[in-house]
Design a protein around this nucleic acid. Sequence first.
RNA 1: GCCGUUGUAGCUCAGUGGUAGAGCACGUCCUUGGUAAGGACGAGGCCAUGGGUUCAAUCCCCAUCAACGGCUCCA
Length: 576
Amino acid sequence: MSAVTHPTPSLPELRHTAAHVLAYAVQELFPDAKPTIGPAIENGFYYDFDRAQPFTPEDLERLEARMREIVAADHPMLGRQVSRDEALAFFADNPYKVEIASEIPQGEPITLYSIGAFTDLCRGGHADSTGALGAVKLTSVAGAYWRGDERNPMLQRIYGTAWHTQAELDAYLAHLEEAAKRDHRKLGAELDLFSLEEEAGGGLIFWHPKGAIVREIVERFIREGLRERGYQPVVTPHLMSEKLYATSGHLENYADSMFGPLEVEEQRFRLKPMNCPGHILIYAGRPRSYRELPIRFSEFGTVYRFERSGVLHGLTRVRGFTQDDAHLFCTPEQLQGEFEQTLDEALRLMQAFAFTGFEYALSTRKADERTQTDPTAEAAIRRALESHGLAYVVDEGGGAFYGPKLDINVRDAIGRRWQLGTVQVDFVLPERFGLKYRGSDGADHRPVMIHRALAGSMERFFGILIEHFGGAFPAWLAPVQAVVVPISEHQLEYAREVAQRLGRNAMRIEIDETNEKLGYKIRHWKQQRVPYVLVVGKQEASDGTVNVNQRGVETKRTVPIEQFFDELSAAVEQRL
RNA sequence: GCCGUUGUAGCUCAGUGGUAGAGCACGUCCUUGGUAAGGACGAGGCCAUGGGUUCAAUCCCCAUCAACGGCUCCA
């Protein structure tokens, strides 16, 4: 260990330095590998190498060992500025570095940084010395295209994580483990919530009874809010003429994400990738007056989007999904108010499901696609956010093809970020479909549309809920809210009576009729994360009580059946 | 789609160039047990699919499919 004290580098500096150390180790152990780019990322770093041979897990171990030696040697990080010619000459045998060096604008300094015998082209932002690296671990290898473009050569990417101290690294690894335990794909199978079926094809979800009931509860909750806020439910077809999507612009702008045409009687049909065109047809089906605006059509609309096989992932990235979709048609004057109302709805949803850390991201349209209405649409979003006192970040060019959008992000129970809903302002589709309404002045006017989905997709939302709660759904959502467990078969009849008395008001109660010992049954239901296990033995049967073993609560209590019913009802009522 | 890894019982995984094993889950029986695994027995596999190599392939080779980790994209 070095006796010299270093100023503590920031985590990005530390991780950037770790990337250099990795490249140094690779240069030594695999001299044929050409280093390309190696930035710090969230939680760690990566470095891409051009090498014919992929790195194996054993290679990673060797590299990690070598990296520790480089850290222990405490090489100072030495930077120097060079001329462009010098840089090009230095990296003559590395076309990637040459490409980067050539692209550095005139007037900007070109810098090389060295540790020990390794020198890299780099703009800086490091620790002073490799000794500053507290704890480093290489995590995985993966293919990655040069500059993320699939037309470019595939490089070998090595991922790693780096922290100030071993304790921080351990905490991070523990966090990964916790996340793995909550993985919705794992819990989905263990709790019998949903599945994907090889025979059916990738990215298509089968909701099992215990998953479907959760979905139904979520839908019911959302529908309540929609009804209160004046939305009208509509239902539109899954399959519609391709002409419709030519009009909407989907064929032009969204075809890559759509399933191909189905031809029937010389007419081409498409599976719907979005619900908006269908809702627009309903709006446009008859003349509209300003007196009926705003019109709010809502639909749990199932859409199909083509996703390349390699990107599918559990419930969060699928090919068929149902959006809690709605389209609002309003006058330009109503836009602001309607947009703000959707923000309130979003807040209600996120709070009901115990999410925290709401963040808002405004995505503007790509510069080359911007229309004259975009500034108006963006301004409406900004004003709505500002009037609610909500901070937001801006993603330039991330908008939909018909307008800018606002994405709503939340933090889950273990601090991870998820994107939930999206609200979009649209002047384009009303134009393309020639939508109008008769104004108070007797003339026709163009309505503005708001597209909004707050849970986003029911599939993805369910996946996020599973991970957020770690499968331990609160009583109002739990597929099985309580299980009655008789101590022996002699109490079976009483158990059935208890279940029957509790099963009112659509309470979801099961009875454990298995021929197992009490401990076994308790363990089973705890593993199934049922909120309440109700043990009934001789004592309870003669007293008309249940012994309540509540999830997450150490102490047990014996209460009359009716008292437990009231307690459960209250929990459901308060969405606990 | 591309790079890499993987594919053996419902699940988690052993294993071998001579057509297979464990634990859990499941079934039957014994047991009637007071708060996180009682016992016995049993059933269950085209070893992902299709080709090759071989006297012989679950194992070696090739292709396909799927899953997983990434790249890219997004609800």
